[in-house]
Simulated scan of single mutants.
Amino acid sequence: MKKWMIALFAAMTFSLAAHAAIEVYEFDTLQQEEQFKELGHTLRCPKCQNNTIADSNAELAQDLRHKVYEMTKDGKSKDEIVDYMIDRYGNFVTYNPPFTLATSILWLGPLGVVLLGFGLIIIRSRKAKQVDVDDKWDQDKEQRLKALLDEENDGDKQ
């Protein structure tokens, strides 16, 4: 009986801790709830960098979720909330940053590397195909080759 009481006490203790970790947000309309969920899955946690604010357990992500909740309850639109987050945390907070002068290297860099690589491959292959006039095979080279082969063959017979 004592074991059952300890197990029940442990289960109750762990269930209270699990209940405290769940955030519950109440909304006036279904549209506000959908907007909150969408923003939670589209805004990036500045601390975690690869998680959305909905997926992250960092304190900063919790603060951002709470701010999105407050702004949604106040009737702010999705664009207004995203603009507020960009003003505060920069373009990094969105997964699809806009094309600006600062981000042009990120957008155009891989394309430039690929084009440069293909250009180098084409130039090197064309240079390899070119044969200089001095490198052409002539009668003199043919005679020298035959002389070398004859020497080698004579050396094998001994």
Rank of each mutant, 00 (worst) to 15 (best):
R144C: 05
K67S: 07
K47W: 10
E38A: 15
N153T: 07
V133Y: 08
E38N: 08
R124G: 04
E152P: 01
F92T: 06
V24A: 08
G117I: 01
Q139T: 10
E70W: 02
A21I: 13
A128D: 04
Q158N: 15
K76W: 07
F99D: 01
K127H: 00
K67I: 07
R144M: 04
D156S: 09
L16N: 14
G112I: 04
P98D: 05
W4Q: 15
G119P: 02
Q158G: 14
W137T: 08
T103Q: 03
V113F: 00
D28Y: 13
I22H: 13
Q35G: 02
P110T: 00
E34H: 12
I22K: 14
Y69E: 00
T72F: 04
Q35R: 13
D135N: 09
W4H: 15
Y69S: 01
D79W: 07
V113E: 06
V82A: 05
A54V: 04
S77K: 03
P110L: 01
R144H: 05
H19L: 13
N153K: 14
L145S: 01
F118V: 14
S77A: 06
N51E: 12
N57V: 09
L108F: 06
Q143H: 10
L101D: 02
S56C: 15
W107N: 06
P110C: 03
K136L: 11
K76H: 11
D140E: 13
R126D: 02
S125W: 12
L116P: 03
R126M: 03
V24M: 10
G155Q: 15
N57E: 09
I22T: 14
G90Y: 06
G40W: 05
R144E: 15
D63K: 13
L108T: 02
S56W: 06
A54E: 11
W4Y: 14
A18G: 13
F99A: 00
T72P: 08
D74L: 09
Q32C: 07
Y84W: 08
G40T: 04
E26T: 15
E33I: 03
D55A: 11
K157C: 05
P110Y: 03
G90E: 03
K78N: 13
A20E: 15
F27Y: 09
T52V: 02
E70C: 00
D154F: 03
S15D: 10
K127C: 01
Q49L: 13
N153M: 11
A7Y: 11
V114K: 08
A21F: 14
T72A: 08
Q130P: 06
N153G: 12
G119I: 03
G75A: 05
Y69M: 04
T72Q: 00
L39M: 09
F27V: 10
Q49D: 10
